[in-house]
Design a protein around this nucleic acid. Structure first.
Lengths: 164, 164
DNA sequence: GAATAATGGTTTGACGTCAAACTATTTGGC
DNA sequence: GCCAAATAGTTTGACGTCAAACCATTATTC
């Protein structure tokens, strides 16, 4: 009783549709835990980015920049696939990064439909900052988590991911 | 190489700031796995709700209804706390549910600042539907996951949650 | 080779979300 | 008792997000 979502191994199974339910500061079920961890991680990253001077961008912009650190020229569709966001969303996100001077857009010469996105020098300068933020975040994330736990976590989460 | 975020136990630590990075259909790190699971679960729930006639509402509305199934009268601030959303967000969400006929709002007589939210009969009718959707979702979620994994998952995720 | 389909991006409209400013009540200190 | 601080909700403005409609260009098909 008082649980969110699932009373393990008991008769009663409480209802919790979505992933954000919170009962007196306890986090009783995995679904909502997942949701809340994601939220905390995102907030943490945004605040770290703001500290480093990236006040105006959010995690999705970060995903795009990160993708371009790894692959310096991507089409809009590429980005959409990589960051798991609708193409119209990507249009908005990339346009903002262009406006801020981090990216450039350029139409392909062979196929006039496709647009290539690339980093500007100002955009490239962000890479080390991203790296340090990422490292700090991962250190914090995995603090107190043993390698065994990490492996099991990854395995179990992969299973769950594939259940949907 | 080609990893997102973390190459376990190796020298290179790839960068992945946010939680939605996707590399050729693989899900290589826990942070992005978490984010994607959350997304899939949410989509699944919304689509199940739509199937059951709840076309117009999303998971956050579901959280509010769920909270009211458990506690039939809540203030706006209660709801905000329970579903982890800003109070202004709650105003919008509750107003929509009122507009759809699922909830009522009523000012407290003793303290004219507070507003009580409660289910209408039409709202109460949703409870069994929610219960079945929730059960189905949890069955799917935990399919192939052993009790041990579940426990370890919960423990590890709790640790991670508390790291932020 | 012209009509049709497919593809890549953008636009538009709706919505959830937050933060900040605001309103209206209550509570506390003096 | 009155003024200041606290509290409960709402409003407003900005933004990320998606889906659907749309526009351009390239591929197909006959």
């Amino acid at each position: 009783m008082g649980d969110c979502c699932l009373s393990h191994n008991t008769v009663t199974v409480d209802i919790c549709l979505t992933s954000n339910y919170n009962e007196h500061m306890e986090t009783r079920d995995i679904v909502s835990l997942i949701s809340k961890i994601r939220e905390k991680v995102n907030r943490h990253i945004v605040s770290e980015m703001a500290k480093q001077g990236m006040e105006e961008i959010g995690t999705s912009h970060g995903d795009i920049l990160y993708a371009l650190f790894k692959t310096p020229r991507l089409t809009m569709a590429d980005i959409s696939r990589r960051i798991n966001k609708d193409k119209s969303t990507v249009t908005a996100l990339v346009d903002k990064l262009v406006r801020l001077g981090y990216l450039t857009k350029e139409r392909d010469q062979e196929d006039a439909r496709v647009v290539y996105v690339a980093l500007t020098p100002k955009g490239s300068e962000l890479e080390p900052i991203f790296e340090s933020i990422s490292r700090e975040m991962l250190d914090r994330f995995y603090a107190n988590v043993t390698d065994e736990e990490r492996e099991l976590l990854f395995g179990a989460l992969t299973k769950i991911y594939n259940n949907f």
